[in-house]
């Protein structure tokens, strides 16, 4: 498993559109993808799950990727979270 912390920088946080983009990207990989915030852990391939995290600006998330293509997936998904714009 590959995991690491990511801070959300966009003004309104990880809102619906970037969440949808994130799911679309996560689905490109075979690995399982999880997002953890304040002890809550959700499936990174579920937009509903991600939205229930209510990750505001400044939230620190743990991204966990587990599977064959975890290295590539982690890199790409981390970059996507970091680039969530305002």
């Amino acid at each position: 498993m590959t995991s690491g912390e990511v801070t959300i920088k966009g003004e309104v946080g990880l809102h619906a559109r970037p969440a949808a983009d994130f799911v679309r990207e996560a689905e490109q990989y075979e690995s399982e993808v999880w997002l953890v915030k304040d002890g809550g852990k959700v499936n990174g391939k579920s937009i509903l799950g991600i939205l229930t995290l209510a990750a505001e600006k400044g939230s620190v998330l743990v991204l966990e990727v587990d599977g064959k293509d975890e290295k590539d997936a982690f890199k790409a998904l981390k970059a996507r979270l970091e680039s969530v714009e305002a």
Partner: peptide
């Protein structure tokens, strides 16, 4: 079960998504 936490979120942007659900 899955969307429950959304409706009670203290952040309006996220709570508002409950309407879409």
């Amino acid at each position: 079960r899955l969307a429950g936490p959304m409706a009670t979120s203290t952040v309006p942007f996220f709570r508002e998504r409950a309407l879409d659900v």
